[in-house]
């Protein structure tokens, strides 16, 4: 497997048309007043992309666009309804069936809420040592302890010994998130999914966490999927950006390209609404009529058509394909 990786031909992660649908138990009331029974929620509805070793893919979108579900599918906290995920050319389905522990090692997740990422009853030392023991890293506990201390110090949690006896609730959010990243990275995964890793942290310490995540990923040549609603931060850390709307990717391309030259009307709206802290900057945010929709009872045509400022009658009739515009740029809009 490592040979294939070094050749660089097989992407580390290949996602082929994955879907995740849920069936809603209670009745659903649509915006125009109809009642749906057992409505299907198209949380992720046909997402495909590839990710090379060491690459950072940013996934942005509003809440409810399916970006978090996508993250959970990638690390197999949930199974997709259809479609497949290939890790270095092998189906994730087979990998997890054959060797679950090894699969868990290759894909790791950083969670949004660092305050709740660790069992509140365990000390930091136990959290680390249990993980290492589970994956048979290190010969004995004193050797594992040494590894942990070294790692902690490498990310500035000094003196490391003082952290080992502490419990999660005695640490700050930034420290906990660093420990969470460290623990995942210790397993040397090939793909890390970070789901809004800084959104619950104070602004003044976010940058450190983002930088640490970026640097450790580059250091280990780990691919990173960075899920966020914050466009500025995503652009800062990502090589490529995928914009999601209602369970689908509507635009994907190099981070700077997407950010400076957005093509899809939804991306344009998102970026024009992106806040600046400079009171002098005059931006004219594009207004989107209507409410952010829920992925229930999807429209027949383009999902964005009902709110799209550029929508033409034909947009509502036919679905849109994600079209290749060359140089890794994909856009799902017939008007472009």
């Amino acid at each position: 497997m490592s040979e294939e990786k070094s050749k660089g031909k097989v992407p580390v992660l290949e996602v082929i048309d994955i879907k995740r649908h849920y069936t809603q138990r209670k009745k659903h009331l649509t915006a125009d007043g109809r009642v749906l029974k057992h409505a299907k929620i198209h949380s992720v509805d046909g997402v495909s992309f590839t990710l090379n070793a060491g690459e950072v893919l940013g996934v942005i979108g509003e809440s409810g666009c399916g970006k978090s579900t996508l993250g959970r599918l990638l690390v197999r906290l949930e199974a997709p309804t259809s479609g497949s995920i290939l890790i270095a050319g092998h189906s994730a389905e087979d990998l997890i069936r054959k060797d679950r522990l090894n699969f868990r090692r290759t894909t790791q997740m950083i969670f949004q809420n660092p305050f709740d990422t660790f069992d509140p009853r365990f000390s930091i030392e136990k959290i680390f040592i249990d993980t290492l023991k589970l994956h048979k890293i290190g010969e004995n506990n004193s050797e594992r302890r040494k590894i942990v201390i070294e790692k902690l110090e490498s990310v500035g949690l000094i003196p490391a010994e003082s952290f080992l006896d502490r419990f999660p609730h005695e640490l700050s959010g930034g420290q906990l998130q660093r420990i969470s990243i460290l623990r995942s990275m210790m397993l040397e995964p090939s793909v890390v999914v970070a789901d809004e890793p800084v959104s619950m942290l104070d602004v003044s310490i976010r940058a450190d966490i983002i930088n640490m995540l970026y640097n450790t990923a580059k250091e280990h040549n780990t691919s990173l999927v960075f899920i966020s609603h914050d466009i500025s931060t995503t652009r800062y850390i990502s090589d490529r950006i995928a914009v999601m709307y209602l369970g689908r990717i509507v635009e994907m391309g190099a981070a700077d390209e997407v950010a400076t030259n957005p093509q899809h009307p939804y991306t344009k709206a998102l970026i024009s609404n992106c806040a600046s802290i400079d009171p002098r900057s005059k931006h004219n945010p594009v207004k989107l009529p209507g409410e952010p929709p829920t992925p229930v009872d999807m429209p027949a045509g383009c999902a964005f058509a009902p709110r799209c400022p550029m929508a033409a009658p034909e947009c509502c009739k036919t679905g849109q394909e994600l079209r290749d515009f060359g140089a890794g740029r994909f856009i799902r809009c017939m008007k472009v």
Partner: peptide, 25 residues
């Protein structure tokens, strides 16, 4: 000053490195 520096700027061309304020409350 530190707060402003740690806020990612959505600027058109530059990639300024983000900086945190070290330490904690």
């Amino acid at each position: 000053q530190g707060l402003i520096k740690s806020f990612p700027v959505f600027d058109n061309d530059t990639h300024q490195p983000l900086q945190s304020i070290g330490g904690s409350l």
